[in-house]
Design a protein around this nucleic acid. Structure first.
Lengths: 256, 256
DNA sequence: CGTCACTTTGAGGCTAGTCAACGGCGGTGG
DNA sequence: CCACCGCCGTTGACTAGCCTCAAAGTGACG
């Protein structure tokens, strides 16, 4: 709607506006599907991917629940979320997506988008048309394996978050996942790109509960809230609070 | 532990004991991965699959959390469940698996099993060694697509179950999913293979809550409990109670 | 007939949701 | 420049749904 102030350099936005072809070989997103191997797939991806696309909060949706799945989107920068709308018109956040993540994987099974995807902060995505993707998967099976691993990881995360009982458990697990996923900033602080209410919505908690639980964590010196975001002071304690199998196993080796 | 009375014919058990090679072309499980197409993949699968394996409740686990992923298991008959154990030693059920389902998909991402799998009732599974599977996926990309669709579907289910708020919503959604997944018996009754406490564990509800909620459904004439299992009398009402995006979209077409 | 596992039923407590009000912040417009 | 407004985070009081604990009932099996 209104002009949004952005963290991204103006040049980047201009590049998106002029629809430059993305060169995957130069992409800084190291966690992207393409970069998992030596990068020998990068050229094929570059050829396939549509120009990267800028996406602002308040803009239209990348995909809408019920749409036929037309493309997967690879997040290049920023943060996106997917949500569904229940019969009462309430939004229910299904997932957050950070650079390197693919949006639309849950639709591969049915071919129909199950959720609506929008930007949380000014973001960029690369567009991978599903038709091209299937061709590529046929020609280069390793691509299929990589995508499958991402779906599998998303499944594991979903199962883990769903497996948590209490507000403390879910929130602790969420913070740990976020830390392992997006890392920490310059002074070790973790910046939450999404609003607290969005966190609550995602974890099925009222935003008041999120606030109170965070305060409780702070009183226990597990975290400290800083200028921008918060800092994890006692990860072992958080990990213990999240109890069941850890969400993040960054040290796990990839299969084959 | 003790000898378990089984619903399966003795011949079937004997076949498993003698490690007969499964012939996928003759397999009665129509929802199996192999049968989705015309069946031209069936022979390759037959060549790949290890002998099918009988699995009893109380037997050892098919896979254990923390194990390196050695194989996927395709359920041929019966019902299996996967669970994790939290720091207090409590079991937390992650999923139920019926004929046609693949066990182990959430481990494809990390290569390490995230859960332990055991039988709920006397069951049979086909063993698909992961090494053979990757080779087959390379030679036959359609296999990769099929597996991906199953992962994607499992992800969608997990997201849907996690998205339900109240006991009524979760239980209604679960019953509907079960109905669409395993269908109904001879007189339209739905037989729950797992214990009520397992249902509660899976849905993160106390078994008392499951019991009371079922009773409430019965009082509203949404269901009727029969000799063996229960009957869904008012599916629209259940569907409305489950409110948010439906779990089951049996009419969705497969992509490509 | 006794054991065991599971279900059912009841009473009470706690977690988290709801409702309401306030404060801080940024953007808008006079 | 400053008052206004809306969004978000914070805090408190109250409520409700679900968990816990306890005990009795039921069916399968030895």
């Amino acid at each position: 709607m209104t002009a949004v102030h952005t963290d991204l350099p103006a040049m980047t936005l201009h590049a998106a506006a002029s629809m430059l072809k993305t060169d995957c070989l130069l992409c800084p997103v190291r966690s992207c599907l393409v970069h998992r191997d030596g990068g020998d797939q990068a050229q094929a991806w570059s050829d396939m991917l549509a120009p990267r696309q800028a996406l602002m909060p308040g803009d239209g949706a990348l995909q809408r629940a019920g749409d036929r799945l037309g493309a997967l989107y690879s997040v290049r920068g920023g943060c996106a979320k997917t949500y569904t709308v229940d019969s009462s018109g309430n939004e229910r956040i299904r997932g957050f997506y950070f650079p390197g993540d693919l949006i639309g994987l849950d639709a591969l099974g049915g071919g129909v988008c199950l959720s609506t995807a929008v930007a949380v902060v000014p973001s960029q995505v690369c567009v991978a048309p599903i038709a091209d993707l299937q061709g590529l998967m046929s020609r280069m099976p390793i691509v299929a394996v990589r995508i499958m691993q991402q779906v599998s990881r998303e499944l594991a995360l979903s199962l883990a978050i769903a497996g948590e009982y209490t507000a403390e458990q879910r929130l602790a697990a969420f913070l740990l996942h976020l830390r392992s996923r997006i890392g920490v900033g310059i002074n070790g602080s973790l910046r939450l790109p999404m609003a607290q209410r969005d966190v609550g919505n995602y974890l099925r908690l009222a935003n008041e509960t999120v606030c109170r639980t965070l305060k409780r964590f702070e009183q226990k010196d597990w975290i400290a809230s800083t200028e921008r975001g918060l800092k994890l002071l006692d990860e072992p304690a958080l990990r213990a609070a999240a109890a069941p199998v850890g969400l993040d196993s960054p040290t796990l080796k990839l299969a084959a």
